[in-house]
Design a protein around this nucleic acid. Structure first.
Length: 261
DNA sequence: ATGGCGGGTCTAACCCGA
């Protein structure tokens, strides 16, 4: 099975790119982030016409995640509350960033981790706290499910080789030690990076700033990831970044990343 | 470079992303 993740930066603006990519790359599951649309206005039919089931968890203007699947998913969970229940305050799901479903023998978790804005912003401690809730969420899933794939836009580059220029990174959001340590605490539950099973190169990125001709100069970051529980990591046969959509007219600033299981 | 581009919507002396 093939599972892809793609932050599309508005599903309505990127609709033609996503449908074309799915036609060329008919993955079993596509995890979308930053759909930026309420559920009633999500463009379902272009995907159902391609043979995909559509599961959405959106909000107005910001955030929003979705799962597209070639077969119906079971046990779809919406938000942190969908797994942690009322024990977690509803405020943690005010921003729609988490959706999860069961495909074949794999629990797929699709995340849009907060960006954090800047180290001095209120959004930065929110991001760190959010990663703490994520740890509880995944620990709860792992109590009953052993094959878990966690993917999405993590807004964190875990290693210096994941950044075009790591100089000053300890003060830069997406690469501070606190963010990396918060993500490592999540991964210590038993997850490993599918991409690094197959590729040890630097210069491998999934996001490039719209400004300063960053894509043409390959000034990017690798912040979109597939993390796998142990048996899935052993089973993984490949993990690839498709940079082609970044060169289209009016692209998303992220590109799709696909894991083969 | 407290913002160069590009989403969104309260179309702006706007907000937000990464």
């Amino acid at each position: 099975m093939n599972v892809a993740t793609w932050n599309v930066n508005s599903i309505r603006t990127r609709l033609a790119h996503v449908t074309q990519w799915l036609t060329d790359n008919p993955v079993d599951v596509l995890c979308l982030q930053e759909t930026k649309v309420v559920d009633d206005d999500f463009p379902r039919s272009p995907f159902t016409e391609l043979g995909y089931e559509v599961y959405i968890y959106g909000q107005k203007s910001y955030n929003g995640v979705a799962l597209l699947s070639r077969v119906p998913l079971t046990d779809v969970r919406y938000g942190f509350g969908g797994v942690l229940g009322e024990a977690i305050g509803a405020e943690w799901d005010a921003q729609k960033r988490v959706i999860s479903g069961w495909f074949a023998d794999v629990r797929i978790v699709n995340l849009y981790v907060p960006n954090g804005s800047s180290v001095s912003s209120d959004k930065y401690p929110y991001k760190l706290a959010w990663l703490g809730i994520l740890r509880d969420y995944l620990q709860t899933l792992l109590a009953s499910e052993s094959q878990v794939l966690v993917c999405g836009d993590f807004n964190i580059a875990l290693e210096d080789r994941d950044i075009h220029d790591p100089k000053g990174r300890e003060k830069q959001v997406m690469a501070t030690d606190a963010e990396r340590n918060a993500l490592r605490a999540v991964l210590e539950l038993g997850f490993a990076d599918a991409f690094r099973k197959f590729n040890q190169d630097d210069g491998q990125f999934s996001w490039w700033d719209y400004r300063a001709a960053a894509f043409r100069r390959n000034l990017g970051w690798r912040i979109d990831h597939h993390y796998l529980s142990p048996s899935l990591y052993e089973r993984a046969q490949g993990c690839t970044i498709d940079i082609a959509p970044r060169a289209l007219e009016k692209p998303s600033d992220h590109v799709p990343v696909t894991v083969q299981l």
